[in-house]
Design a protein around this nucleic acid. Structure first.
Lengths: 205, 205
DNA sequence: GATTTACAAATGGCATGATTTTGTAAATCA
DNA sequence: TGATTTACAAAATCATGCCATTTGTAAATC
């Protein structure tokens, strides 16, 4: 009951093709959402914009709901990737890393279609729930993994707590801005600096 | 151009009567919202439940929108009053005060009709925006006033920053709970303890 | 001063039918 | 083989008109 003739180079190619397809489709969704919003975007629109058949969409994503989730997931992962990059580049100064990461995130978020649609009150329900739900979960996990990687002395549990708290505040400020990104980032650095120092092993503690 | 014959006891009485009216009406709204939600509650319903005429409602509140804002405002002020009470009762230990306040808030919030409607996804738009907007503003101000009153050594700017940050996290956890209130409150105490120590004048700083 | 009554305007269902869109399956194509 | 095309049923969305309700305001009445 096993007729496979030993896998060659074919499997990795198919995987790459699949990823390329998903990438292309989700990018098409991004353009359409930016232009007309998600509610006014149909599966046919997406198929046409991506240059594939509508069926391929269903074969790959299964449903419209799954597609928008993949889209939001990609947006979030794009943001966290940029933030992660900034954190790594400032690994020598955790305070600065925190401030720059927050500032960068808020600036990027204000240009995100999803965030803009929610703030503008258009399509608040669907996307709002996805951003807070998925966004909180995904970003928390990413940041919770990043922290002990850059600062190994931080215990995983503490990293998780810090990550979740920072992400909650980041989303809160993205959706309901208090001041400009720079000022908010400065405030967040001020609030979290003492806790961060404790996690990193403060000299006098 | 001043024909007032010296104010007697009449003005305070009228004020008291007005407050009583508003109190009665908003309490009626609270009951109706708890029973049917806000969308299904009409001005006639409120008038009947409060035992006043529909006109009195308009004379006092002006519009349906203004009424629901008064209602949400009262709910928020009710919550912050309870939290304020708890903080004052624990003024001798800021860490404990922070934890107990957070725990109490999350428990009270889970029984708030407004919070329940939002979490249940019913009427998400209207009330969600009111709770985050009004709630954030009102609660922040209350807490920002409370802190320097209980701990005078905290500078007003720091109090404002701490208050706004705590309120954002409180609302975030009320609308998207991570764990049970007790665990979350414990986490918040752990995160903010170092910053609070700094504001209170840490021994070794 | 509040209530009742009256009323115009806006809003909110609701029934209807047409249209679009979703999601699935089979046939076709390269 | 895998994607496309075609076909199709079920569901969702939309446009329409209509009716009932509700909002908000004003005047009359208690």
């Amino acid at each position: 009951m096993n007729a496979e003739p030993a896998p060659t180079v074919r499997v990795p190619f198919q995987t790459a093709a699949r990823n390329l397809l998903r990438e292309t489709v989700v990018t098409a969704v991004e353009d359409l959402v930016r232009a007309r919003g998600w509610a006014a975007t149909t599966m046919s629109d997406v198929a046409a914009a991506a240059g594939v058949s509508r069926q391929t969409l269903y074969n790959e994503f299964g449903s419209r709901q799954a597609l928008v989730e993949a889209y939001v997931t990609k947006e979030i992962e794009g943001l966290t990737a940029r933030v992660t990059e900034a954190v790594r580049a400032n690994a020598d100064d955790a305070h600065r890393a925190l401030r720059i990461a927050f500032d960068l995130f808020l600036k990027l978020a204000s240009n995100e279609p999803v965030v803009q649609l929610i703030v503008k009150d258009a399509e608040g329900g669907e996307l709002h729930r996805l951003l807070t739900g998925l966004g909180q979960a995904l970003a928390s996990e990413q940041v919770a993994t990043l922290i002990p990687e850059v600062w190994p002395q931080v215990r995983p549990d503490d990293a998780r707590l810090l990550a979740e708290t920072l992400v909650r505040l980041a989303i809160s400020h993205a959706l309901l801005p208090a001041r400009d990104p720079a000022a908010t980032a400065h405030d967040m650095e001020r609030v979290f600096a003492p806790f961060v120092d404790e996690l990193l092993g403060r000299p006098g503690a």
